[in-house]
Design a protein around this nucleic acid. Sequence first.
DNA 1: TCATATACGACTTAAAAAGTCCGATATAAA
DNA 2: TTTATATCGGACTTTTTAAGTCGTATATGA
Lengths: 138, 138
Amino acid sequence: MLKIAKSVEYALLALKYIHERQDLDCVSTKVISDSVVIPYELLAKIMQRLVKDEIIISQQGTKGGYKLAVPPDKINITRIINAVEQKVQVTDCLVETPTLNDCKRYQDCCLRNPLNQIQIKINKLFDELTLGEIIQYN
Amino acid sequence: MLKIAKSVEYALLALKYIHERQDLDCVSTKVISDSVVIPYELLAKIMQRLVKDEIIISQQGTKGGYKLAVPPDKINITRIINAVEQKVQVTDCLVETPTLNDCKRYQDCCLRNPLNQIQIKINKLFDELTLGEIIQYN
DNA sequence: TCATATACGACTTAAAAAGTCCGATATAAA
DNA sequence: TTTATATCGGACTTTTTAAGTCGTATATGA
Ligand code: SF4
Ligand code: SF4
């Protein structure tokens, strides 16, 4: 339990690869997919979401690809998680406006508050960790 | 992502219920299952695991059931997570002895160290949170 | 105008989590 | 001593979610 989605890992690995190839004008999904070994179609979708959140800039057509829109130090992990449409959600009830459909217990559950505190602290960990700090390894 | 297993929540809710009924000699799975609204068979399995880890004591036969083996302040959430056979595992590679089967990248992955740091911090949150702190709510 | 790239949505498959079933043993009370 | 009610333990099925795939459209440099 408490696993991070592969799409988040793939996004981080791809962003690291792009950063390492700053010398090039841009890097295509194909090249990243082959180098980092990520399923092409899956990575393509992830790249598009990173574009939508303006973490990377796309260049369409032949010789197209992606380059970083922002220096790695300016991007935290929370932003990447949001970009790839993932959510840190420790329980079913920890959504903006919970309903009985999320969890029948949410109105008087003694777990909700303490687990929300855990979630807040986990969110803080991702807020304070930047892409820059991650790609400095290896 | 990063969701806590329902079996952990059920364990916590059941333990809270047992604690509230300290006056009784012991509480049966049936009673807990009906009161807290947890599928009977599923809860039964969870109770057995809590017995195995000596968090609760079982009384078999008619008029049987369970009672707490330890005061709630002395039980932290990590122990309950372990008892119900769940693991905090942020990535596929964060196991005792990772192999290429866990993740083909584990030998030179820049994510492994930073994500392990996250996992260590999450584990610390569960280490420092006791059942006693949770059941004081409501 | 052609080859190679991104863009976007729908779909399928695989893995994990949640829930169920079954046959056994234990024990208090009738 | 029989019966009803409980725990015990494993195997199994179902449901849900995550991961991965496919198809078609559009952009653009050579
Ligand atoms: S209300 Fe309680 S049981 Fe339901 S999802 Fe939230 S924490 Fe879990
Ligand atoms: S090695 Fe890297 S990519 Fe593989 S599971 Fe670990 S962190 Fe994720």
